[in-house]
Each structure stands twice: as C-alpha cells, then as structure tokens.
Simulated assay, not measured.
Amino acid sequence: MNAISSPGEFTELDRFMFESWGYLVIPGVLTDAEISECLAASIRLHEAAGTTGWAQIGRGFETEPALERLIDHPAVLPKVRALYGDRFILQSAWCTKQPALGGMGGWHQDGSGAYDFKKLGYPIPLLQLRASFLLTDQSLPRTGNMEMIPGSHRSQVELPGAIRAAKEDVPVGHVICAPAGSVLFFHNAVWHRTFAHDGDYDRYTMHYIYSPPWVRCSDRFENNPEFLDRTTPTRRYLMGPFARPDAPFGAGYPVEFGEG
C-alpha cells in the first residue's frame, strides 16, 4: 500500500494523501537515461570527496548539470508550489550514499539541530519539504529503502526514546518500495529512517529540500556567484537572492521610522 501520485499537478487526492500520511510516492519521474546520468554524477561527487560508509554531500548541483536539472523538475515543482505558494527556496540538496550491506538507520524527524521544530507549535509546521529522487532500484525491501511511519507528522507524542535508541521495528512502519527514477515527497515531521541495504552495491538518493524564504540554507553558507550567473532565472530564484516584499522588516511603516 502506497500513497501513489502522478508527476506534475498537486491534485485534491494528493493533498488528502499528503495531509493524512505526510508523504507521496511519485513513480516514473526520471527516464532510464536520466537515472544513469544522475547516478554517474552522484558517484563522481562521492569519489571526489573520498567518502566512506554512509555519507552525504551538498550543493552538487553547482558542478553536475544532471543534478542541477532536478532542482525545478516539472514532476515535483508544481507540488511544492501548491504547498508553499510562490515564495520558497531550495534550502539544501544532499546526495546520500548508503554503502553496500548497510544496516538500519535511526528513527528521526527532519529539522534543525540548532532549534527543534517542535518548539514552534502543533502540528509541527512544514519547514522542510523533501523530494528524494531514487537513483538505484528500491523495488524490494532491504535495498536501502526509506521506512516511514504514516501520519506521524500529526502525532502529539514522540516515538519512544527506547525504540529510537535501539533502532527497533514498529508495527506501523511502512517500507517504501519503488523503482529507480521514482520520487519520495515528504513532510519534515514524519518519523522515518533508512532501512537496511543487503545489496553488494552502494545505494544513492538525491534529496532536494524546499523551505520558506526565511529559513537558513544548510548545505551552503552562501550561493556560488558563478552558478547564479549561469543558471536559469527559476533556479536563481530558488537559491534565494530575490527581493523580499516585506523588506525592510518594518513593513507597513515609513522607511525613516523603520531605520530608527
């Protein structure tokens, strides 16, 4: 059982499933050729960095055109806009590698180590909307899948600490099985973890995280000016260098008063 969506439009059914479960699975987003290009780009990034074990690398879109093209992919961007409106940024982009024969990850919610999103209110607000492009096949369990707990973004209580510490199974865990080229689209507050990977090859996933425009980027302290100069207007906008309608922050007051 999956909350299956189609590329492109965020339909009324999409909204119902996303609000109920906290995530969608979008099969058939990338062609075989695109999968190969993105996988090769991901391997290059990790080989250049000399990563070992489980690892993630940010801002690969600056040097890898295949990964840059996913920033505003037409299968995903309309869904992001439907949830955020027209003002949001690409908060980060992480290329993750789970090594061959990798074990279970730990249960967690996405967020900030500097400030727990749960402090902001209930339900935890949508501050990091993630689109994860699967670059290796995850059609079967134990291939480095993501395991989600449906609807947990609405829970008023945390997953018990003992279960998190021991990385134990929970009876409501849902292992996402989908072929390479699919996208897992989910809310930051859904409890999830990386499932075991029994294969003799490294598993790669490319994650794009979208946030409100005032959230600080987490894969970069500043944008690469050369990348901004050569990329498209839409992607430049998603990097965040656009005029804010409420700047200066004293919006609604005379400028001279705000400057005082």
Results as ranks from 00 to 15, higher is better:
residue 249 F to P: 15
residue 235 R to I: 05
residue 178 A to Q: 05
residue 50 G to R: 11
residue 97 K to F: 03
residue 84 Y to P: 06
residue 79 K to S: 11
residue 225 P to A: 08
residue 210 Y to I: 06
residue 118 K to R: 15
residue 195 F to D: 00
residue 90 L to W: 12
residue 184 L to P: 07
residue 183 V to Q: 04
residue 179 P to C: 14
residue 88 F to S: 11
residue 55 A to V: 02
residue 95 C to V: 13
residue 155 S to G: 04
residue 185 F to M: 09
residue 248 P to H: 06
residue 54 W to Y: 15
residue 128 Q to E: 12
residue 61 F to P: 02
residue 256 E to D: 06
residue 127 L to R: 15
residue 199 G to H: 03
residue 9 E to C: 05
residue 124 I to W: 06
residue 35 I to N: 10
residue 166 A to I: 06
residue 68 E to G: 04
residue 62 E to Q: 11
residue 251 A to E: 06
residue 193 R to S: 00
residue 60 G to S: 09
residue 151 G to V: 00
residue 9 E to I: 02
residue 42 S to I: 02
residue 142 R to L: 13
residue 100 A to N: 06
residue 97 K to W: 01
residue 131 A to I: 07
residue 4 I to C: 03
residue 135 L to G: 04
residue 165 A to I: 09
residue 68 E to S: 12
residue 108 H to K: 05
residue 162 A to V: 08
residue 222 E to Y: 10
residue 219 D to P: 04
residue 170 V to G: 08
residue 139 S to T: 14
residue 250 G to C: 13
residue 140 L to S: 14
residue 69 R to D: 10
residue 171 P to S: 09
residue 251 A to I: 00
residue 244 R to K: 11
residue 260 G to W: 13
residue 201 Y to D: 02
residue 242 F to A: 04
residue 194 T to N: 11
residue 126 L to R: 15
residue 86 D to M: 04
residue 37 E to G: 03
residue 83 L to R: 10
residue 77 L to S: 12
residue 16 F to L: 05
residue 258 G to K: 02
residue 147 E to K: 00
residue 123 P to V: 07
residue 212 P to C: 13
residue 49 A to D: 11
residue 216 R to W: 12
residue 257 F to D: 12
residue 40 A to K: 13
residue 146 M to G: 01
residue 111 G to S: 04
residue 113 G to H: 09
residue 109 Q to I: 07
residue 202 D to Q: 01
residue 199 G to Q: 02
residue 8 G to F: 00
residue 94 W to P: 00
residue 71 I to C: 12
residue 186 F to P: 08
residue 41 A to I: 04
residue 92 S to H: 07
residue 219 D to S: 08
residue 126 L to E: 08
residue 254 P to A: 09
residue 40 A to T: 08
residue 42 S to P: 05
residue 115 Y to M: 10
residue 166 A to S: 15
residue 11 T to D: 01
residue 244 R to A: 09
residue 176 I to K: 05
residue 120 L to V: 07
residue 138 Q to C: 12
residue 100 A to I: 00
residue 118 K to E: 15
residue 127 L to Y: 12
residue 240 G to R: 07
residue 260 G to R: 12
residue 259 E to M: 08
residue 18 F to V: 03
residue 100 A to C: 07
residue 250 G to L: 11
residue 238 L to P: 08
residue 19 E to R: 11
residue 73 H to Q: 08
residue 195 F to G: 01
residue 176 I to A: 11
residue 202 D to E: 06
residue 85 G to C: 02
residue 219 D to W: 12
residue 59 R to E: 13
residue 149 I to M: 00
residue 40 A to I: 01
residue 109 Q to Y: 05
